[in-house]
């Protein structure tokens, strides 16, 4: 650190900027006071109130349905897509196309999907949110798996095919095995992205099945409550655990 000299200043400034707000939220979530700004003592009261809030519980259930469904579908499609591009279909354009949903502004995808669902007369609900979340989920899985495929040796697969195995059985017996860490990491990322996704869900969800972020949105519009602080702390914990696990499985930072 000493060698950085004055460069350590922007580094620490960035980390302070990124983590102080989060730290304040977490500390406040253990505040006994009902007015959110004065510290009156340690309490886990808001966490227990959170558990008995029906709106939040239902939102959580809805979100889990979408997140689990989108994770399963996006992981399968994204893995197949990455293998297809890397092993059978090398094309920079195709790769860019597959990763496009990760770069596309979420609002553009949101209004596009709303227009599509309206055009084909599909009722909005959790199923439409799920369909929407698979779009970007697939891109993130494909990106992580593609990065890993770049480091794997295709000669094992070639040997398997030369010995008469078809592409599918080669894929299942050889490729998937070497890709497992990347696939799991990709799945974890889709799960946490879907869990936290608001904009696309806001446009493609029906009124009777709000996901947790939509519930949070309607709560924070009306100001600060200690309950949201507790919910925030829990969600941060989930996201951080999931992303750090994904990082340990495969060097996500190498995907850059």
């Amino acid at each position: 650190m000493r060698r950085l000299g004055w460069l350590s200043l922007p580094l620490w400034l960035t980390y302070a900027f990124l983590y102080l707000p989060i730290a304040v939220l977490v500390v406040m979530s253990f505040n006994a006071s009902k007015t959110p700004y004065t510290w009156t003592g340690f309490s886990t009261r808001w966490y227990s109130e959170l558990m008995s809030d029906d709106l939040i519980r239902q939102g959580f259930v809805n979100t889990m349905i979408v997140a689990v469904g989108a994770t399963v579908i996006a992981t399968v499609l994204g893995t197949l897509l990455a293998v297809g591009i890397n092993r059978y279909f090398r094309s920079a354009w195709l790769e860019a196309y597959s990763l496009a949903p990760a770069i596309l502004p979420d609002l553009a995808l949101a209004i596009g999907l709303l227009a599509l669902f309206a055009l084909i007369g599909m009722t909005l609900g959790l199923h439409t949110v799920l369909l929407a979340h698979v779009v970007f989920g697939m891109a993130f899985v494909a990106a992580v798996v593609l990065a890993r495929l770049g480091h794997t040796d295709p000669s094992l697969e070639e040997a398997s095919r030369d010995l008469g195995a078809g592409p599918v059985s080669t894929f299942l017996r050889i490729t998937v095995r070497s890709l497992t860490p990347a696939i799991v990491a990709g799945a974890l990322l889709v799960f946490t992205l879907s869990l936290d996704e608001f904009v696309i869900a806001f446009f493609t969800d029906g009124p009777s099945t709000p996901t947790l972020p939509i519930v949070i949105y309607s709560m924070v519009r009306f100001g600060v409550t200690p309950e949201i602080n507790a919910l925030a702390a829990l969600l941060l914990l989930v996201s951080f655990t999931v992303v750090i696990s994904a990082q340990r499985l495969t060097k996500l930072t190498d995907t850059i």
Binding site: L20, P21, I22, V24, L25, M28, P36, L189, T192, L193, L195, D196, F198, P213, I216, Y217, V220, G223, V224, I228, N229, L231, A232, L235, L236, S239, F240, V242, V243
Partner: peptide
């Protein structure tokens, strides 16, 4: 990677 609404909400608190 964490919830975007929560991160925005943190600034209302701050």
């Amino acid at each position: 990677w964490s919830n975007f609404l929560i991160r925005t909400y943190a600034w209302i608190v701050l």
